[in-house]
Simulated assay, not measured.
Amino acid sequence: MRATQSGIFLGDDRRALLARLQSLVTDLSAPDFPHPSSIPVIIDKWEVSGREVPCLLGNSFGHPNIVDGHASISSELFYFDPEGGIARTISRWYRLGTPSNPQI
């Protein structure tokens, strides 16, 4: 990844990154989080993992760019509520299915 005047970061230019971050701020500052049943993207057999940032690993369903049931690694994880069944990455909300290790 190279630094440029447009602020390339995570594959986006600065304006695109700011729009994604603003969407995250809007979601996390809302008075109520969405009900899990209203979140179209499901991550099943999930676990919290790490790369250089926290993320989710699992099998995605309903994701706009990943074939249903295929393994996926999410973007950076900003909000995680396993008891509530939801998580928010920089790019979208996820409804949490079954954890890969149910003892979590």
Rank of each mutant, 00 (worst) to 15 (best):
S75Y: 08
P99W: 11
D13T: 07
W46G: 00
G7Q: 02
I86P: 10
F9G: 03
H63V: 00
I90T: 12
Q5Y: 14
A87I: 09
L77P: 06
V53Y: 04
D12K: 13
R95Q: 09
G84Q: 07
A71K: 03
S75C: 12
P36D: 05
I43Y: 01
F33D: 08
P82Q: 01
R2C: 10
P82S: 04
I43E: 02
M1H: 11
I73L: 07
V53D: 02
D81T: 08
H70T: 11
T26F: 06
D81M: 07
L21M: 14
S91L: 11
T89S: 15
E83R: 12
F78G: 01
V53K: 01
Q103P: 07
S74T: 00
R51T: 15
E52S: 12
C55T: 02
C55A: 13
P64T: 07
F61R: 06
R14L: 13
S91T: 13
I42G: 00
I8G: 05
L21P: 13
F78T: 00
I43G: 03
L96V: 10
F61P: 04
H70L: 05
E76G: 13
G84E: 08
F78E: 03
V53A: 07
W93K: 02
F78D: 01
G7D: 05
A30W: 07
I66H: 00
A16F: 08
D68M: 04
S49Y: 14
R95N: 08
I42Y: 04
A16W: 02
V25Q: 00
F9T: 07
S23Q: 13
H35I: 07
G50N: 15
P54R: 00
T89P: 14
G85M: 04
L57T: 12
I66E: 00
S100I: 09
W93Y: 06
S91V: 08
A16Q: 14
S100C: 09
I86K: 00
R14N: 08
A19P: 11
L96A: 06
T4D: 15
L77A: 05
R51Y: 14
Y94V: 05
L18N: 09
S6K: 10
L96C: 05
A3K: 13
L10P: 04
V41Y: 03
W93V: 09
S74A: 00
I90Q: 13
C55P: 09
S74V: 01
Q103C: 13
S74R: 01
K45Q: 15
H35A: 14
R92P: 11
P54Y: 06
P36S: 01
V67P: 03
M1W: 11
S49T: 10
G58T: 12
